[in-house]
C-alpha cells in the first residue's frame, strides 16, 4: 500500500471540499482576522499595555503570536473535528477500512490540512502586517521548519483530543476552551525556566527571532532548536499514544461508528 496514494486521495478530497465549502473557508479566515483586529485595537488603546512573555509589549509579538496560534488551532482542531464530523457523517468506518491503517489516513489528513491552509494563513499574515504596519521578515526557509517544529505539539493535542472524541463523541466545549489554553502557552515568558518544556512556547520564541530580528535558522542556538524539536516530538508522541489507547477502547466498546 502506497502512502502517497493515500495522501493524493486526501488532498484531492480536501481540495474539492474546500472549494465547495468556500463560504465556510473564507468566513473562518475573516473571523480570525476580526479577532485579530479586536486584539490589535485593544493593544493600541491600552497605552499601559504590559510586556508579557513572547509579546514583549510589541505589535510584532502580537502578529507572530497570532500567526502561530492560527496554525496551532488548525493543527489541533482539524483532526479532532474531522473525526467527529466523519463519525457523524458515517464515513469514519470506511476510512478505518483502509489497508494501510487509519493512522496513515489521519497523518495524511493532517498534512493535507496544513498544506491547504498554508497559503490562506500566510495571506492572512500579510493582511495582519498591513493592518499593523509592522512588516516582518518572511524567510520561509527558516520559518517553515520552525513552524512545523512548533506546531508538532499542537498535533499531539489534536491526536489526543481526536482519540477522546472517538470514545466520548461530544467534545466541542473542550475544543473551545483549548483555543485559549494555546494562547496561554504562547504568552508564557521564556525567562521562566520551565517555559521551554511547554508546547508551542519555545518554538514561538524562535519564530519571533526569525521574523523580527531576521535571524536565519542555522544562526539560532542549536540547543534551543533541538529542545523545541524534542518537546514538540514528545507532545506529539504522547498524543499518538493517547489516540491509540482511545482507539482500542472504541473498538472494544464498538463505538467507532457511533455519533
Amino acid at each position: 500500500m502506497n502512502p502517497v496514494s493515500i495522501l493524493v486521495a486526501i488532498l484531492q478530497r480536501d481540495w474539492a471540499m474546500m472549494r465547495r465549502y468556500i463560504v465556510n473557508t473564507v468566513s473562518s479566515l475573516v473571523s480570525i482576522y476580526i479577532i485579530f483586529l479586536f486584539i490589535f485595537l485593544g493593544i493600541k488603546g491600552l497605552s499601559s499595555y504590559a510586556a508579557i512573555g513572547a509579546l514583549e509589549g510589541t505589535l510584532e509579538g502580537t502578529v507572530i503570536g497570532f500567526f502561530v496560534w492560527t496554525f496551532s488551532v488548525i493543527a489541533y482542531s482539524d483532526l479532532a473535528w474531522s473525526l467527529i464530523v466523519e463519525a457523524q457523517a458515517g464515513t469514519l468506518e470506511q476510512l478505518y477500512l483502509t489497508p494501510a491503517g487509519f493512522k496513515w489516513v489521519a497523518g495524511c489528513t493532517v498534512i493535507s490540512n496544513l498544506a491547504l491552509n498554508f497559503v490562506p494563513v500566510v495571506l492572512l499574515l500579510v493582511v495582519m502586517m498591513a493592518t499593523t504596519g509592522q512588516w516582518l521578515n518572511l524567510d520561509f526557509i527558516s520559518l517553515v521548519p520552525l513552524l512545523l517544529i512548533t506546531i508538532l505539539g499542537a498535533y499531539g493535542f489534536g491526536f489526543a483530543l481526536g482519540g477522546l472524541a472517538l470514545v466520548y463523541k461530544r467534545l466541542q466545549a473542550i475544543f473551545q476552551v483549548f483555543q485559549f489554553v494555546l494562547i496561554g502557552f504562547l504568552v508564557v515568558p521564556q525567562r521562566l525556566p520551565w517555559a521551554k518544556f511547554l508546547p508551542l512556547s519555545l518554538g514561538n520564541s524562535l519564530i519571533y527571532d526569525v521574523m523580527v530580528d531576521g535571524v536565519r535558522l542555522w544562526e539560532l542556538p542549536t540547543g534551543s532548536v533541538l529542545t523545541a524539536l524534542l518537546v514538540g516530538a514528545a507532545y506529539f508522541a504522547i498524543g499518538v499514544v493517547i489516540f491509540s489507547v482511545c482507539e482500542n477502547i472504541a473498538k472494544d466498546r464498538g463505538l467507532l461508528g457511533h455519533y
Binding site: 500500500m1 502506497n2 496514494s5 493515500i6 493524493v8 486521495a9 484531492q12 478530497r13 474539492a16 471540499m17 465547495r20 465549502y21 457523517a89 458515517g90 464515513t91 468506518e93 470506511q94 476510512l95 477500512l97 483502509t98 489497508p99 494501510a100 489516513v105 461508528g257
Partner: peptide, 28 residues
Amino acid sequence: SAVLEGSRNLYWRLTVWENILFFARLHG
C-alpha cells in the same frame, strides 16, 4: 470492503466520481 450504513458511507459534497476515486485510492 463493506457497505455499512448505505448512503452515510459517502461524502455528500463530493460527486459520485470523486467518491469512487477517493475510496478506491485508499485501497491503492
